[in-house]
Structures are given as structure tokens and as C-alpha cells.
Design a protein around this nucleic acid. Structure first.
Lengths: 167, 167
DNA sequence: TATTGTTATACTCTATAACTATA
DNA sequence: TATAGTTATAGAGTATAACAATA
């Protein structure tokens, strides 16, 4: 319970000479957070490669897919859906708008909010991107069978979907 | 194959008025990268809370655990093990050394390299932290049964353990 | 007064290049 | 020359506070 932050003077280990060690097995591999981060790094690396030709970042892709599914979605709703902060949505939509992929349309009923829509260009691109993303996922998880891949997706959803108050 | 980057002038959607939409189901949820990121965010949030009292970041925790398992590990080996870059290891070890948790010992055989060891303080702390981390993982995945949790860990390891050249 | 979107800011994480000291 | 560690730096991603326009 008490904060053990007070550093004692470091005790020198008994041996005088450091010896290089080869790290193989790892207690760390029992930790879920570690496994999640490593797996995510791998999958995202593949994703980056797949999207490089179109210069699309993960958050941009996610935004495009949500806007496609919910044309006219507001920025605040998008922020909530992707669980990112409103300021991030601003630069995100700016980048999509500058590239002619999406556009803001002022809402007449409530002139504070903007609806976001895909342009024709954006619609064409997101269709292609979804195919690339799916292919990238498959390549990144070649070591899994189709059944295992579905199991993994189900388990991950079960983890993040369960809200317990804070989120 | 061709890069469809040339943005055409954005076509205004047919409707004049944007309407707020409620986002519920999501095609995005079929994407592995998205599910991984969301699950990781949740697990890491719990981890942060569990470690706040000791002011320990995920990378610091991982380093402590590896050093505990492999006393005298070199910084380059640690970088490789955690798949982070050497410059990151420097500031990481600096922070641990400043807090009296770990220390560099110059290797006599090859005076370029340092072996890293835990201090007595570091050893005591990492023992406590491992317990907190395990408890945090359990809390973050309350929606999973014990069997499902093991399944998830196995699947994740299978994903990131398979090297295919690039990593 | 509350809400949508925005600006400004800062802090962490990450990646790269260039330097040093040793080999 | 090659390697281990270091320094400096810059780019993402993320989080917060403060502000403008509108309700």
C-alpha cells in the first residue's frame, strides 16, 4: 500500500563482471498485455505496408469505414465510436478533406454540428482499402487456421466490448 | 495496382442537410487490427491503474522482468528481446538506474557493453509488480473464463511468434 | 448554461542519423 | 572496419485546457 519510491543506495551485485546472456524463454510471455502489444505491432506492420501505396494511416482507415457505414455521422459521434478525443477527429477529418476523400456538411437543424460524408473518390477508395486490409490481416496471421482466426476475433471483442463503468 | 491518389474535386452528396446518426454495429469490428488495438487499450488502461502507485510504465515493467530473468543481460540484447530500438533502452535503463532499481555493470571482457542487474530494491519491487500485473490482467479480462484467457494468450503468441523474414 | 467544434499545448512513444569508445 | 552504447532530433499518437459559435 505504501509508495516504495524512496530509492535506497543501489547494492552492487556480487559478481564483478557482466556476462552477456542469450534471452530465449520469457516469463513475460505469460502476460496478456505484452502478448497483445506484440501481436498488434505485427498486425499493424502488415497494415502499414498494405496501405503505404495509398498513404493511409490506421485511424484514417477506421474513420473512412465508419463514415461509409454511417453517412452524415457527426464528429463527436465519430470520436465516441473510435474512442478517440474530439481534437484528434479535427485533424483526422482535415486530412481526409484535403485529399478529397470526405467532406463536412453543416447540419441545418443544429448549426453547431457537421455531418461527414464520403466523396465519390472516398467511396471508391474505401472499397479498395477494405479488400487490402482484409488481405493484410490474413497475411499477418498466416500461422492461424481460419477457425483460430475467428476464435481470436471473438475473444478480443469479448475483452474490449465489456464495459465496466470507466470507458 | 495504380495509385489512385489524384483527388477529383469533391462531389457534394445529394442531400443538403446532414443528419446525426447513432453508430451501433460496425463493419470495423471484423478487422483484427481494430480488435487488437481496442483490447490492448483496455488491458493497458488497467495496467496503468495498477502501476500508478509505483509510477511504472509498461516498458519499464517489461525491462525489469527480463533483467530479473536474465541478470547481466546487455542493452542490445534487451532491445532485441523487447523489439525496441537501442536509443529507447538507454533512457529506459537511465530511469531505472536513477530510481535505484537497476544498474549497469561494465563488462570486463568487452568494455563496450554493459550488463544490467537489478538492485535489491529492484528485485523486491519486481516481485510485487508481477503480482499486481497478473491481477490487473485478470480484472481487465473478467468477461473471459480461465480457459478462454489461456486460449487468447496461446493465439496471440502464435501470431507474434511466427517470424516471416521481416521482423 | 451546455454542447460542437476548434486551437494550442504538452507529453509519451517511436524511429533515424550521427557521434564515442572500444574492439 | 565493425559493434555497443549514446546523443540529438523529429514525427506520430494521445490527452488536456481554453476558446468560438451555436443552442
Amino acid at each position: 500500500m505504501t509508495t516504495s519510491k524512496k530509492p535506497t543506495s543501489p547494492e552492487r551485485p556480487s559478481l564483478e563482471e557482466a556476462y552477456p546472456t542469450t534471452v530465449e524463454g520469457l516469463v513475460l510471455e505469460e502476460r496478456l498485455g505484452y502478448a497483445l502489444r506484440r501481436a498488434q505491432l505485427k498486425v499493424f506492420k502488415h497494415f502499414d505496408e498494405a496501405m503505404r501505396e495509398h498513404d493511409i494511416r490506421p485511424a484514417q482507415f477506421s474513420s473512412l469505414v465508419v463514415i461509409e457505414g454511417y453517412p452524415g455521422v457527426t464528429q463527436s459521434s465519430l470520436a465516441q465510436t473510435l474512442s478517440i478525443d474530439p481534437p484528434r477527429v479535427v485533424s483526422l477529418i482535415n486530412s481526409l478533406e484535403e485529399r478529397g476523400l470526405a467532406m463536412r456538411v453543416r447540419c441545418k437543424r443544429d448549426r453547431r454540428s457537421h455531418g461527414i460524408f464520403l466523396t465519390k473518390t472516398g467511396e471508391a477508395l474505401v472499397g479498395r482499402l477494405k479488400g487490402l486490409a482484409e488481405q493484410s490481416d490474413l497475411e499477418a496471421t498466416q500461422s492461424l487456421s481460419e477457425i483460430e482466426r475467428r476464435q481470436l476475433l471473438t475473444l478480443l471483442r469479448k475483452v474490449y466490448a465489456s464495459e465496466e463503468g470507466g470507458d
